[in-house]
Design a protein around this nucleic acid. Structure first.
Lengths: 316, 316
DNA sequence: TAGGTTGATGTAACCAGTTACATGTGTCAA
DNA sequence: TTGACACATGTAACTGGTTACATCAACCTA
């Protein structure tokens, strides 16, 4: 028994001929070591859980891809669960992840069910809040400043002379990221009239919002979407209605999806460093698990990307 | 000890007052049951692993979303690992998943490293191959007939009078799905001249392929992309070059992404039922784990979706 | 009141490994 | 030849739960 364990974990400590005998026995007996038995001794299960709103938005897929990749480097696996922005589902799935042995948790934003906070507290579980920045939050945040991102966008549009702007955003319910982005607009010190359009964060949602913008009484010269997915939907709808972008209407997004760089016109947007966020989250949670030391919050700067979908308003 | 276990798993078997005492003790002692210890007894870890080529393509994200959802109904969690279409990485990550205790594996396609087959064999691990259909494969497949999907597409284009068609596809290396789709073209019994363009499966890949198509000596009247992501890239590139779709060139994809229904023009495509595939995979693997009985292969029919991106060739 | 039954609770074996420690064997120098 | 030491290997305790079984008290019936 002990020798088998040594062959598997420290082959050098066993003489070559015993090792070979054991290895032969392992093969003939089809012996497969039990992960649970190993876990009970090491206290390690070697996986962490990530709770994301959805996989349908490429922005989360990109985040998870980076997270998974970096975790794998630290020999950690990734369990994924989707919450559909419902704190109750999030808390429930978090419970399941803990029940199966997750060593840490990655969550989105800072709005959560008390049951989730309680779970993290009780289990003394390393947990990181992403897509958000708040150094005072009770969990370390790894993310960007959502308000700064929209401020960056609106500031640019205003700087281009736009005074009437439609803002297309996702549902406000249970979504602190969207609310923070909304709040960011107030940081811009310019005289701009805003009209707000709430819709589902998906291509059809963008299309519907675009129709609503076109149907609105007050005309706008630019549309700011809080997500590139929405902007892409808007772009398609504009093409359908023969509204030229950016000649008739400027369009700006936030996220910087892969598609945004290659659409026609290319989408002016604010790049959110979700890949780096995935890597930073992986590093933070892995470090926390290994050293037992809570990591510091990480703030990642968003970045304005100017492409062809925006133009200046002819003065006068 | 036994009583604590009973309070947690069968509260009715304990008298109310003992139960309360135990619950109070659990709270004050911050007792959290160990997942590993439970797993060692039940022999269940309650999670399965999925190995997908990438998360960047929305098609896999949609598959995983459905898979995760349906697994959750069966009280199973999902561990996700990406392979980048590299069989060696796939085998390595599969090993990691088994090491941490995955009760089953979901893989893509039927081209794998021998090490993976060996692992599945040795561990007697329930494993399902998706995105493919082959009733004779040594693992049960849950998927669609890739050859049938492209045949459906090419047949439609040929029926619309197209005789010169460009085929834009992803890398052939290590990708049996792409090769099967290529083989499907031969099933179409029509006189059609095909030109092939291999590129990376992503929007920029589609853009580059589109440029290549436009630069080719021989003109085509239609482009068939083996993936909607590619078709979207092609569409953007055509817009950039003022090539009208479908007036100047018909464009057809395969996948039916969310974006495809709402692009301008809407993308004619072959719908691949990846959500149903996710659900069916979840049902199959969960059933296999619970009943120990290997499930039957599942064949899901692809479906032609005609939208605005294709048109008939004017005869003569 | 004795005996049977029921329900609650404690005891200890068990799951499948890891690891500290004890034992055994072989090599080498004195 | 013997003691010292290194190295290999076996033994048993330990991880943290679950569960079969034993025990015991309370209640009901004969």
């Amino acid at each position: 028994m002990a020798t088998v364990s040594r062959v598997l974990n420290a082959p050098d400590a066993v003489s070559p001929k015993t090792r070979e005998k054991v290895e032969a026995a392992i093969r003939t007996l089809r012996f497969v070591p039990s992960a649970a038995a190993r876990a009970i001794n090491s206290g390690r299960t070697r996986f962490v859980g990530a709770l994301v709103p959805t996989l349908d938005n490429a922005i989360f897929a990109r985040f998870l891809a980076a997270l998974e990749h970096k975790l794998a480097e630290r020999r950690l696996s990734l369990v994924v669960a989707t919450t559909h922005n419902d704190p109750a589902i999030e808390a429930e799935k978090a419970k399941t992840l803990v029940d199966i042995g997750a060593e840490g948790l990655i969550v989105s934003g800072i709005t959560h069910d008390p049951a989730l906070d309680d779970l993290i507290e009780r289990c003394q579980l390393p947990a990181i809040a992403t897509s958000y920045h708040d150094p005072d939050y009770h969990l370390p945040t790894v993310g960007y400043d959502n308000a700064a991102a929209t401020a960056l966008a609106l500031d640019y549009l205003a700087g281009q002379g736009h005074r009437d702007i439609a803002v297309v955003h996702g549902p406000l319910a249970n979504n602190d990221r969207t609310r923070a982005r909304l709040a960011g607009l107030d940081q811009v010190d310019r005289a701009v009239a805003l009209q707000f359009f709430e819709t589902e964060i998906a291509i059809p949602g963008g299309c519907r919002a675009a129709s609503a913008v076109l149907a609105a009484h007050r005309r706008v010269s630019a549309i700011l979407c809080f997500s590139d997915v929405l902007a892409l939907g808007v772009l398609f709808e504009m093409q359908r209605n023969a509204v030229r972008v950016p000649d008739d209407l400027s369009l700006m997004g936030i996220d910087d999806l892969a598609a945004s760089a290659h659409s026609e016109p290319g989408l002016t947007t604010v790049h959110l460093p979700v890949s780096r966020m995935g890597e930073a989250s992986a590093t933070a949670i892995a470090g926390w698990i290994e050293t037992k030391e809570r990591p510091a919050p990480v703030l990642l700067a968003p970045d304005r990307i100017i492409r062809g979908s925006t133009g200046a308003v002819a003065s006068g």
